[in-house]
Nucleic acid binder design. Structure first.
Lengths: 169, 169
DNA sequence: CTCAGATTGACAGTATACTTACAATATCGG
DNA sequence: CCGATATTGTAAGTATACTGTCAATCTGAG
């Protein structure tokens, strides 16, 4: 016998993991923007700066794998970072298709200065929970993101970051 | 004495709650779109349909409070739902500024039919975790979203949904 | 070495998600 | 009743976050 369909209520939305993830993401971005308002950097731009700092001379495609944004999205992000003169794009000698990414002095300076604000934002996101619960949530979320990596359209490929070392400038 | 700043590493990004929330959001949307591909509905459009189903005759501003999307975003969502003829907009008699929202027959039908796919998507998001861990994560996330409600730019105001009952048609 | 196939960055298109601003309309204090 | 104030929907602008497609370029099989 077929089971009766569940009634359609708002509660079904409010308790759905997908809805909670969306809400939490909205809240996290709000808090980040607020804490870092002095620097005019979005969370995505911050992550890109860190990755370029950590992997100087990386190209856009590899960068997209390292921070798990798709290439199209990242193109715009890079453009904005370049127009703010936080990064520089130089053509690769070896491969004429590729443009290598480097932090500018201004970019390195902004990145250094923004760190405390970023740290404050990350703390604030979890602040309402008890310390034990913060650890539990973070551990479970890390696990879940990792195990679901392949389910996302742009899986994280941290190891790709190393490949550019062979083909620099 | 001032403490030395932490070194800037990708690990600082990967373990930051904000980054994990963003990743999880990306994954959740991917899974939803995949499971519901037959219906051509996004997660946001689905949530809006449910809210209009639950509160027939609601207006856009109140709807935005009920699902916690801002009014501007919701304007576009409503437009798309209307152009797909899943909802109808009727002017309110009492208040000439307001347009009241109703599900069309097609909208009600799509909403009924999509429910199993939505349910499958929600299950899949948490699938990689052990059942106990799923419950823990959901409980902590629900708590955190609730306690951080005011931190988001568009706080959830579920109770607003009831106000439209007085001013229908 | 050459050509099929892959890769790279760029572009166009769609859909959130927010900001500020604005005109039309409501409402409330005096 | 009337004018300051608030609300509603809409629009323009910015920033993710995807889908495609495309030309330029590179790589590898034969």
């Amino acid at each position: 016998m077929p089971s009766k369909p569940a009634p359609i209520t708002m509660d079904a939305v409010y308790t759905a993991p997908g809805y909670l993830f969306r809400r939490m993401q909205q809240i996290a971005v709000s808090i980040f923007i607020e804490e870092c308002s002095a620097f005019d950097l979005t969370p995505v731009q911050y992550a890109a700066l860190v990755a370029i700092h950590t992997h100087p001379g990386i190209d856009a495609t590899r960068l997209s794998a390292v921070i798990a944004f798709d290439r199209s999205t990242l193109g715009n992000v890079i453009e904005r970072l370049e127009s703010k003169t936080l990064i520089e794009r130089k053509p690769s000698q070896g491969d004429k298709r590729v443009k290598l990414l480097y932090l500018s002095k201004a970019g390195a300076s902004v990145l250094r200065d923004i760190m405390p604000s970023v740290e404050r934002a990350q703390v604030r996101m979890l602040q309402p929970l008890k310390p034990t619960d913060r650890k539990t949530l973070l551990a479970l979320l890390t696990q879940l993101v990792d195990l679901n990596n392949e389910a996302s359209r742009v899986p994280l490929r941290a190891e790709d970051a190393l490949e550019h070392l062979g083909k620099a400038g």
